[in-house]
């Protein structure tokens, strides 16, 4: 049985020193082969068009644009993508909304390996993922949709359709309105971070609740009832947060 064909990789990074570093690191990873590297959006588009790579290592900030510009112009997207970014809060959040993989610069070797392993099994990006991420990034405003990635697929859901999220053994189950649920591979903490500043409320170390679905609250019992009758526990440590939430509503 032949080993699977190596993933063909293109690096888009404007600083030569970093580009060289990426080339160097990639070179050491089995199953990946570098087919090109460039520094600008313009070069990248030409290169991608001609080589059809399996994986893009994509810097967000480029001299003549951003990594999102490249993704938006290469349709249909047939590549997996790992974004490269310095610690830019907003860009990272946008990327996570789209459930796209990313790496922080300066690069950590372990993270790099892990990310490569993860994408090697993943599907190419959905256009919706790109749209959510790039719109969030462009407009500096998070979108109303979220890309949820499960083992099998990526699913786009509206934030208003999510009733609550439950932590489940290192994964997170997202309960949607209508009874549907999606098991994602991310920690609940990731979602709490991602959804901070929205209507979501962490009532328990295992629960993140969409406030709009709360029906009533029993402070003494420490229980929240959702509109569909689901009982959600409120932990003692989170009680204050919940109380505050209700005070604001009043």
């Amino acid at each position: 049985m032949n080993p699977p064909a190596p993933l063909r990789v293109i690096i888009v990074e404007d600083l030569p020193a970093i580009r060289k570093d990426l080339e160097y690191l990639l070179h050491q990873q089995p199953g990946f082969t570098l087919i090109g590297a460039c520094a600008t959006v313009r070069e990248a588009l030409v290169l991608i068009q001609s080589t059809r790579p399996d994986l893009l290592l994509l810097d967000i900030g480029l001299p003549d644009g951003t990594g999102f510009d490249i993704l938006e112009q290469m349709r249909p997207v047939q590549s997996k993508v790992i974004f490269l970014t310095a610690h830019q809060e907003y860009a990272i959040k946008a990327i996570r909304y789209g459930a796209i993989d990313y790496l922080l610069k300066p690069l950590d070797l372990d993270e790099f390996k892990e990310a490569l392993q993860r994408v090697s099994h993943a599907q190419p990006l959905l256009e919706e993922q790109i749209a959510i991420a790039s719109q969030s990034f462009r407009k500096q405003k998070l979108q109303d949709n979220l890309a949820l990635r499960s083992q099998q697929c990526v699913q786009i859901v509206g934030l208003e359709d999510i009733c609550y999220l439950q932590a489940d053994n290192g994964c997170t189950t997202v309960f949607l309105n209508g009874g549907k649920k999606i098991v994602t591979t991310k920690f609940l903490k990731d979602y709490e971070e991602l959804l901070s500043g929205t209507s979501f409320l962490r009532t328990h170390h295992s629960y993140l609740i969409n406030g709009t679905y709360i029906d009533r609250y029993h402070p003494k019992k420490g229980v929240l009832y959702l509109k569909d009758g689901t009982e959600i526990p409120v932990s003692l440590r989170k009680k204050e947060i919940v109380d505050l939430h209700f005070k604001k509503l009043l």
């Binding site: 600083l15 030569p16 020193a17 970093i18 580009r19 060289k20 570093d21 990426l22 160097y24 690191l25 900030g61 310095a86 610690h87 610069k105 300066p106 690069l107």
Partner: peptide, 17 residues
């Protein structure tokens, strides 16, 4: 800006090389 992180990332590359 990128400058510092780029410089450091770049430096990392140079060292690794």
């Amino acid at each position: 800006s990128h400058f510092l992180s780029n410089s450091i990332s770049g430096l990392q590359g140079i060292i690794r090389a």
